[in-house]
Amino acid sequence: MEGIRAYLLSVVAAAIISALVMKLVGNKSAYCGIIKLVTGIFLSITVVSPLVQITFTDMTDYFETLDIRADAVVSDGVNSSHAAMAEIIKENTEAYILDKAENMGLTVNVTVYLSDDTPPTPISVKISGSAAPYAKMQLQSIIESDLSIPKENQAWI
């Protein structure tokens, strides 16, 4: 940008100087033709010579930085949404198990663990509290059939 600005300034300055010189010399002067030629060559060199030296900056680094920033912003959104969804799924699954346990007259504490998939699914559960063997077996079957958590992944404390 600085280069373009300097180029424009030089072209404009050359044009103004040429116009002033032509105005001072006047059209009827004996040297008018030569002055016109000289100012024309001067202006042409000012306009053309920087264009010959143009090189294009490598913008790859800038675009890479832009991509990295975009990825960071998007990842932030995806990660926070994933975390919020995991929290809701965990709470709802725990509420479901507690509801079933309450229907059987059991008082238990439940902690559900989720997978790292998208979307996260319940993979294991830790249940603490006392329960009769039959009630415990019933609850385990319900958890296995309704929530796809196999018995080996259900820990009773």
Partner: peptide, 26 residues
Amino acid sequence: LPVMASAMAAQGAVTTSAALYTATTL
């Protein structure tokens, strides 16, 4: 823009939010 792009990505529009964010920033 990062706030809006992040919220849009949270809704599942991952590709669109990245593309819009990159275009607007550029």
